[in-house]
């Protein structure tokens, strides 16, 4: 049976509406694209949609309370939420260097690590003590 999947191309601001005709796993045709990028994108999205992900983790001993991190390679689209949850369990201590691997072969996939997106220096204990105590993740948004 021939089925059609619809995508919007993200290659440029035109955003061509793409239609991908397929028979189970076999791609028959991509239509609606004004340039080659559209066809390539639809094929990629159909066979193996991947996303890069970045988030933050808790850091202590630094000027900021959160350290930005990213996953070094694109992961499968369906794994995004699971990945984010796993990364959030990480806790790191300053100092951290940019590019430092915080979690190797994350998700069991070789070469896909969680890395720090910036360096953070260690600052004096006295300065962080009051910050970390008071500034736990707040429960804001709960109407009293």
């Amino acid at each position: 049976m021939i089925e059609i999947k619809k995508y919007i191309c993200i290659g440029c601001p035109v955003g061509c509406p793409l239609q991908l005709e397929h028979e189970k796993d076999r791609i028959r045709e991509v239509t609606g694209n004004e340039c080659n990028r559209g066809a390539k994108y639809a094929r990629q999205e159909f066979t193996d949609p991947r996303r890069s992900i970045s988030t933050t983790v808790q850091i202590s001993g630094a000027l900021r309370q959160r350290l930005p991190v990213k996953v070094s390679g694109a992961i499968h689209k369906d794994q995004i939420l699971e990945a984010a949850r796993k990364i959030h369990e990480l806790k790191v201590m300053a100092p951290v260097e940019i590019g430092q691997v915080l979690f190797k072969d994350f998700l069991g996939e070789k070469g896909i690590d969680v890395v720090a997106c910036r360096s953070m220096k260690r600052i004096a204990e006295a300065m962080t003590a009051c910050r970390t105590k008071k500034h736990r993740r707040s429960k804001a948004g709960k109407p009293e």
Binding site: T56, Q65, A140, G141, K142
Partner: peptide, 12 residues
């Protein structure tokens, strides 16, 4: 708030 301070502004 979220990325630098570690606060969530709300839930919904």
């Amino acid at each position: 708030f979220v990325n630098l301070k570690g606060y969530l502004p709300g839930k919904r």
